[in-house]
Design a protein around this nucleic acid. Structure first.
Ligand code: ZN
Ligand code: ZN
Ligand code: ZN
Ligand code: ZN
Lengths: 167, 167
DNA sequence: GGCGGGTTTGTTACAGTGTATCACCCCCGC
DNA sequence: GCGGGGGTGATACACTGTAACAAACCCGCC
């Protein structure tokens, strides 16, 4: 139940983990246009991550894809996830060692904020030019040249707060 | 070689990892005033983290503290590190699975930014009310109530940029 | 059709990270 | 002395991630 969260005023909202079909379609289109292979395994891994309500570990995905007669080893899942991350189709949540799907294209240098709900376990993502600007200035003052950054916030999502107030 | 980085204009600078002696002194004072035990093991673990130039894994610390005749198991190091983290004496770098010392008291709700140099491997920390403000507004718009957050930036530190320009 | 080279996957083994559990010790209050 | 809580030692285990090599696959080329 990852609700999309608005970013800066006027910017486009996000909807990560919203619709597995859309994520798969984007993966396919993106690989075709980049001349890369959207193989069955990669599709299945992306599908498994997109279908889950909460971030999935690589071993979770491996187990989910394995059936009697076909075993998918974690190492294969890791390789698929590496590929999907390079293409911007999934994100890794460092504080959880787990992965979430991404349904939208991130502009270059666009900062992403992961919102991790400690109640329902869901992860939503948003972006903020405001934060990005402030961080840029802070880094400049520190004389630090960034290559990339991660920003993960843990707390309670709107839906869970609502539920708590009601029930 | 963790240089301190200035935070917002007028705010106090940081100096994490700067002086092992200062970190140990702060740990001792802080435990005394809180009625907690600054045991030999905890002191040694903090000392090992503070003496290192780069973030240390729990197993690194365990190895560093072990000598012929005395073996310190990683699990003991983890327990000490958990304690030191609760007291705000060390930080965990999620993207590296490693720990750094902290020489200053963080105010409540004060955002911390970790600056991870991919060249020298050192980690510096700073804070930015600017980023904190922007993040607060972004989270409010998203209807998300934060409990805590991590912000880690990878890139090149000022010293390494300087060295690169010179050499 | 057959060949050659890059990419993907399977398989095994291993390294690294973190936790659960129980026993022992120590200290302090009763 | 006795009981209880906190800290440590020790073992075992679960979880996360990577290295190395072989087999399969794909695709352009002859
Ligand atoms: Zn995304
Ligand atoms: Zn929630
Ligand atoms: Zn600190
Ligand atoms: Zn550096």
């Amino acid at each position: 139940m990852h609700r999309h969260a608005g970013s800066d005023a006027g910017a486009d909202p996000h909807a990560c983990g919203a619709d597995p079909g859309a994520v798969l379609a984007r993966g396919e289109a993106l690989c075709r246009e980049r001349g890369l292979q959207f193989t069955p395994l990669r599709r299945e891994v992306l599908e498994a991550v997109a279908a889950a309500e909460r971030p999935q570990g690589a071993y979770d995905v491996a187990e989910r894809l394995s059936r009697p007669g076909r075993r998918v080893a974690p190492v294969s899942v890791y390789r698929a996830l590496d590929f999907l991350m390079e293409q911007g189709l999934v994100h890794r949540i460092a504080s959880r060692n787990a992965f979430i799907p991404c349904a939208h294209a991130h502009g270059p240098g666009e900062g992403v904020v992961f919102l991790i709900c400690r109640t329902c376990g869901g992860v939503d993502e948003t972006s903020s030019r405001e934060v990005e600007r402030g961080l840029g200035r802070t880094l400049e003052r520190a004389g630090f040249r960034p290559s990339h950054s991660i920003l993960e916030v843990e707390g309670d999502c709107g839906a869970c707060l609502e539920r708590e107030r009601a029930g």
